[in-house]
Computed example of a mutant assay.
Amino acid sequence: MNATQNLPVVAVTLGDPAGIGAELIAKLLSKPEACARANVVLVGDRWLWEEGQRIAGLQVPTAPVQALAEVRGRADTTRPAFLAVDSIDPAAVHRGKAEPAGGRSVLKVLDQCMDATLAGHVDAICFAPLNKQAMKLGGMQHEDELHHFASYLGVTGYFCEFNTLGDLWTSRISSHVPTKDAAGYITAERITQAAELIYRSLLANGVAQPKVAVAAFNPHGGDGGLCGREEVEVIEPTVRALQARQWPTEAPFHGPFPADTIFLKAQAGEYQAIVTMYHDQGQIAIKLLGFSRGVTVQGGLPIPITTPAHGTAYDIAGQGRANVEATWQAFLIACRMGAAHRAAA
């Protein structure tokens, strides 16, 4: 086996064709260091890739392949491989609009990449921003892409989104549900699963000694039961049970801490991950800390899948203004987790 075959194979997709995805991927793959970190294969429509380069004002040489099964055996990985897929006609794309054709395009490309990961040809996927409305219009039967991935890959255990910002990761025990229903998701099982999953994912991302903080649900952490009893009855006992178990590293779980101070502890470097109790409890904080660098990791799947945490930015599509930093960070995580996935296979 030559040295290049030790690199993880990372599939990169162009995202919603009406958004900024193709421009972002042109900027991403123009970085010489991208192909030093992975055996990269770009999957998408040829015309869309050419348009993304035009918008970005870049030319990125690629090496054509006929199938994703060819990528791992490439002798030269200094250029991204390119698998051209006919998923959408240019005339069906109206920049800045969520439409069924765009959703079908995204689903076709991502499903093809997932097939390749299940077959052992790809180690990780990094996708450019997509649009949930377009995907639902295009036939997605699930509430979001994570549930689509989990269904497609046959996941039966716990899964959730992680949002990351540099060295800080967050998970949550409930996601896209009305805030009034969030308390009903606070169970020992869900807290345990979310905490354990993000801990093991940090290990796979190369963090040697992960420290995970668990957030309280109520103001002031419930004030000992005077301002809500979720902490007393569920969250505190669950954290104690986690602390009592044996783990590969020393004392990884702590809390619960009030939500209005927990991110200060993490920002100071005390913790590498926070388990939050509902969507906005973590999302608001992490986006304020650095919106342009945020990454979403699809946690609990049998393969690593990452994406920038921002959306399709329809309002600036085609203008060449898209910031590539979050996409670059998502790609780096896909490379690290893809390498760990390959090593464990």
Rank of each mutant, 00 (worst) to 15 (best):
R72S: 14
A75K: 12
A75R: 06
D76A: 02
D76P: 02
T77N: 15
T78N: 12
R79I: 03
P80F: 04
P80Y: 03
P80K: 12
A81G: 13
A81I: 06
A81W: 05
F82D: 11
F82W: 09
L83Y: 01
L83T: 01
A84F: 02
V85R: 04
I88Y: 05
I88E: 15
I88V: 10
D89S: 08
P90D: 08
P90K: 06
V93L: 11
H94Q: 14
G96E: 14
G96H: 06
G96Y: 02
K97Q: 15
K97N: 13
A98K: 08
A98D: 12
E99T: 03
E99M: 08
E99L: 13
P100D: 14
P100N: 06
A101F: 04
G103C: 09
G103Y: 00
R104D: 14
S105C: 15
S105F: 01
V106A: 14
V106D: 11
V106P: 01
L107E: 12
V109C: 02
Q112E: 14
M114L: 14
M114N: 08
M114D: 10
D115L: 03
A116M: 04
L118N: 08
A119D: 12
A119R: 09
A119P: 06
G120V: 03
D123T: 04
D123S: 05
A124I: 00
C126I: 02
F127D: 02
